[in-house]
């Protein structure tokens, strides 16, 4: 969505706004159909639509590996995982719909390249080791954000996130199993894993976004609990959980500047190139065009199924 679409200044009834803020502050959640400030609706749609897009686009890189999975057990598990991701998109588009956008509208925006999806899904999945990285680290990163948002103020989103996190946990466990078998494998397998990790590291650091500027906007998002933790808090949470996994298996964290600062209980890392994140976020990543084209091709290819369903129901 464009910056230009942002409502100028919310024209909310001050009395309703005060009541709304008081409810949120006391820990209450808002249900579908209840009164909410226009700016709240705008931000909630932006967040949930982006999440929904990311789930359905996120199914594509791993999908490439279903036919090439090394064993039948891996193929079954990967298929289940990809199916979960598409299912999450279904749940999330429905939640976004309760905020006043139609599913068709959102889907059209996605396939026409007018909407955004997470930076990590704009990159190639070159080897089987990339599947391990995606399952452990990409899903692990997503889990930090989504886990925090389970306490967000929009109840339908919070409910769906519980279910999503439950399934994401399976993805991470599955990924760790793939990761372990490669990390304990032959020197070639270990090299393949290290190479995938090297390629994914920057997108993973990018994943949480730039450290938030202290702004009235961020303050308000936190106060309204559309945002629950800052970008940097989530990135640190991710590093604390996942850096030890890399080290445990004797692999190398692809950032020579990374170190743990005991006094501050946080990791220091090399500042990544934030311009790359902005570029990729605007659908100019290495695989953006190809994946969007694939999404559109499937959408068109399946049009007859949607039509047949409607005709059948009408008959």
């Amino acid at each position: 969505m464009d910056q230009a679409l942002r409502p100028q200044e919310p024209q909310d009834d001050p009395e309703q706004l005060a009541r709304f803020e008081q409810r949120i502050q006391s820990g209450d959640q808002i249900e579908a159909g209840e009164w909410m400030p226009e700016a709240y609706r705008f931000e909630a749609i932006r967040l949930i639509q982006m999440h929904a897009n990311s789930e359905i686009m996120g199914a594509l890189p791993e999908r490439e590996w279903i036919p090439r999975a090394p064993t039948l057990a891996r193929k079954l598990a990967l298929t289940a995982k990809v199916q979960d991701e598409v299912g999450h998109a279904m749940l999330l588009y429905r939640v976004a719909e309760t905020l006043g956008r139609s599913r068709e509208e959102m889907f059209a925006e996605l396939v026409e390249g007018r909407a955004r999806f997470h930076n990590v899904f704009h990159y190639p999945a070159e080897t089987w080791a990339d599947v391990a990285i995606i399952q452990v680290f990409v899903d692990g990163a997503a889990m930090q954000t989504q886990g925090a948002l389970r306490s967000c103020s929009y109840a339908p989103y919070a409910r769906v996130l519980k279910r999503i996190c439950y399934e994401e946990d399976f993805h991470i466990q599955l990924g760790l199993d793939v990761w372990r078998s490669l990390a304990e494998g032959t020197p070639r397998q270990r090299a393949m894993l290290q190479d995938a990790l090297n390629r994914w590291w920057t997108p993973l650091i990018h994943f949480f976004g730039m450290p938030d500027k202290v702004s009235p906007h961020t303050e308000r998002m936190l106060a309204w609990r559309i945002k629950v933790k800052s970008n940097e808090e989530l990135r640190q949470q991710f590093l604390r959980r996942f850096v030890p996994i890399i080290l445990e298996y004797g692999l190398v964290v692809p950032d020579p500047g990374l170190r743990w600062v005991e006094g501050e209980q946080r990791y220091v890392y090399t500042e990544p190139d934030w311009e790359e994140l902005k570029r990729v976020g605007r659908n100019n990543g290495p695989k953006s065009a190809e994946r969007l084209a694939l999404r559109l091709a499937f959408y068109r290819q399946h049009a007859w199924v949607r039509e047949a369903m409607t005709q059948w129901a009408a008959a």
């Binding site: 429905r94 599913r103 409607t310 129901a313």
Partner: peptide, 12 residues
């Protein structure tokens, strides 16, 4: 209630 689906009829 566990969630919703979009469908043209009950069977689907």
């Amino acid at each position: 209630h566990v969630g919703d689906v979009h469908a043209p009829d009950a069977e689907m």
